[in-house]
Amino acid sequence: MDLYREQILDHYKHPRNFGHLEGAHVMSEEINVSCGDKIAIEIQLSDDKERIADIRFSGEGCAINQASASMLTEEVKGMTIPQVMKLDLPYIEKLLGTTLTPSRVKCALLPLEAIQKAVQSVR
């Protein structure tokens, strides 16, 4: 298992969609209790409020956490809220191109949990 593949390191060192979103509709924050890392998500919805139009994330985290957030924010742009709610661990593992040991699952899932919490608050 090569967790620290080039693609993951690239997203870690140059995260996409990192920062803040002017006029975000929803935001949320999640904390990883095992290390204290935090991630904040800001989302702008489409005019009909059914899709994610734009998204940013911020916070500190390990390579797995940051790469997961970076890749995931690229993917969810344009997705409908039900589509986002269906995403799960196997999806994230496919995105990262690796399987995760139990102790690292939380790191990888944290961005997804934050995004799902944010969009859920829309309804």
Partner: peptide, 21 residues
């Protein structure tokens, strides 16, 4: 380098340390 990543990479050579608070 994040402590989680340090611990994970050290694990590859069986060096077991703790990461967190």
């Amino acid at each position: 380098a994040h402590p989680h990543d340090i611990a994970q990479l050290l694990n590859e050579t069986n060096v077991f340390i703790r990461a967190g608070n």
